[in-house]
Amino acid sequence: MSTVLIVGGDQIDGLKKIVSKYGHHDIEHWSGRKAGDHHKKIPQNTELVVLVTSWINHSFTYAIKRAASKRQLKIVYATNLTHAREHLMKQLGQDSAVLSGCRKTLQPFIVV
Rank of each mutant, 00 (worst) to 15 (best):
A84Y: 07
L73S: 08
T46N: 04
A67G: 01
Q107G: 03
Y77L: 12
G14E: 08
A35R: 10
S96D: 08
K65Q: 02
Y22H: 15
W30V: 06
H38A: 12
D26C: 08
V112C: 07
V98S: 15
A67D: 14
D26A: 06
G101K: 00
T82Q: 11
G14K: 08
K16E: 14
Q11G: 09
K21I: 09
Y62C: 02
L106S: 15
K104G: 01
E28R: 03
Y62D: 01
L106Y: 01
K70N: 08
E86V: 13
R71K: 15
I6D: 05
V76I: 14
E47C: 12
A67R: 08
V76G: 03
L15C: 10
V19E: 13
S54I: 01
Q94K: 11
H83A: 13
V19I: 15
R71W: 03
Y77H: 13
L106G: 11
W55N: 09
I42S: 12
A68V: 03
G23S: 07
V7N: 02
W30T: 03
W30M: 09
R71Q: 14
A78G: 15
A68H: 07
R66I: 04
V111F: 04
I64P: 05
Q44G: 12
L106E: 11
R85I: 02
Q72L: 07
H38R: 14
G32D: 08
V76A: 06
V112G: 13
Q72D: 12
K34D: 14
R103Y: 02
P43R: 08
H83Y: 09
Q107T: 14
G36P: 03
